[in-house]
Design a protein around this nucleic acid. Structure first.
Lengths: 248, 248
DNA sequence: GAGTGGTCTAGACCACAAA
DNA sequence: TTGTGGTCTAGACCACTCC
């Protein structure tokens, strides 16, 4: 069952991407769209809100809505998976599943992933043959079987899931902070307990917004740096190898 | 004029951050909230959509809404200074200059800031009366006099420089990683040496792109989280206030 | 002043989760 | 089966933009 507003949003998006509404032009008014689709104004507004969130359409109170862009790729994540990033930068990389088990979702996970049963995976990833990243990932139940079918030493889970299911990931929210290495972190990464790690908590969804996984990724300090440029249109977040010279 | 749903959202957000609704607990139902605030269900849902978009609340059709988090986070979608961010979130904050001296720029600094002489400033900043941030900032020579004129306990340097010079900052590039606290960091922040800090190195420019400062900011672990969203919010009905749409 | 989008109301029905 | 959130309608008024 696809919601009415989703279908209207899809039609409008197609119109924009097709060029029927060029960048800079105004869209039909709420009332016109409501008449065209025989829907209530509220439903049309819900559809338009989708396009606004994607950055395709801009709106200001009192003024007509304007088409801001006509490329889908810009509105979605430019943040690639660890493997994609490493590959595109010419680094050698690897990965190894250390633990994997199904279990019941806690209340927070259930709400986050929309799933009662989850697959918990502990993965250690290497860069240039050095262990640099501990991933603790919780997958939604509907994708669990596909994840379990992936070889344990697969380097790119994203690629493997795309090959087996056709899924393309969109990256949702990222929370970045610093934490002290716990006992398990320290052992896996070869650092002392309590030493600094860069933590990235993230939620991954399909392009339609369906939650796929929730992950707690911990990078060894000095191995990876996140970079953000605050210029419009630029990639908001990219990873960089550590050891960058910045400032003095 | 603040919208009704914004005020309701703010109240609910405060309740969550205050701990009145612990993480994992369920929120009141739409109907209960509508009755409590004497608002229509649609208005309450609009407020809740704000919290869902912020990642504080999760929802699934048929199930009660659940509190997902209760931590403050700093979003990169908003190009705010520490003071602006703290103020907009209702936190008390302060700052104190500990050291300040002019010196010759190193070759990298000279290239980066376009300046032979620089002003080096060590600043300690507090949030809710706790020291959370050590800032080591290097200002370009042309702005040094204006910086030196700012009172040492000024909370918002950005504001002070705007007041005295009319300058508006644009934030250029941010590099984020984790480092171990050095001796000075540890002493100032009241943590053990070697304990994890979240480091943000950034370059600030004027809106025209002229470099103003280069800074190494170190946050005590657990005090602040950076958040980056690069896909559609869970509920597209709500636009984020003042959203600048980079990558969003 | 006319037109438009932003907000809000008060209903209704449906899909889904949990008991 | 009951309750909840998700969707949709049909109106209303307001704030704002643009002419």
């Amino acid at each position: 069952m696809v919601a009415r507003y989703e279908r209207i949003a899809a039609e409008l998006r197609d119109d924009i991407l097709r060029g029927a509404h060029p960048v800079g032009s105004t869209l039909p008014t709420d009332a016109e769209l409501a008449a065209r689709y025989s829907a209530a104004r509220g439903t049309v507004r819900q559809a338009l809100a989708v396009l606004v969130a994607e950055g395709l359409v801009g709106s200001r109170q009192g003024a007509r809505r304007i088409v801001l862009g006509n490329s889908r790729s810009q509105s979605f994540a430019e943040l690639h998976s660890f493997a994609q990033w490493a590959k595109s930068n010419g680094y050698s990389f690897g990965g190894q599943v250390l633990q994997q088990r199904r279990r019941a979702a806690g209340p927070v996970e259930a709400a986050r992933l929309g799933s009662d049963e989850v697959l918990e995976v502990l993965r250690l990833r290497t860069l240039e043959a050095e262990p640099v990243l501990v991933e603790r990932t919780v997958y939604a139940g509907w994708i669990a079987a596909a994840v379990e079918a992936i070889p344990r030493d697969c380097g790119s889970i994203t690629q493997a899931l795309f090959d087996s299911t056709g899924l393309v990931f969109a990256y949702g929210e990222h929370l970045i902070d610093a934490v002290a290495a716990g006992a398990q972190d320290a052992r896996l990464l070869g650092v002392r307990r309590g030493s600094p790690l860069l933590r990235q908590r993230r939620i991954t969804t399909t392009q339609e917004g369906r939650p796929v996984e929730s992950s707690d990724d911990r990078y060894r300090a000095g191995s990876v740096t996140f970079s953000i440029r605050n210029s419009i249109g630029a990639n908001p977040l990219i990873r960089q190898a550590g050891d960058l010279h910045f400032g003095a």
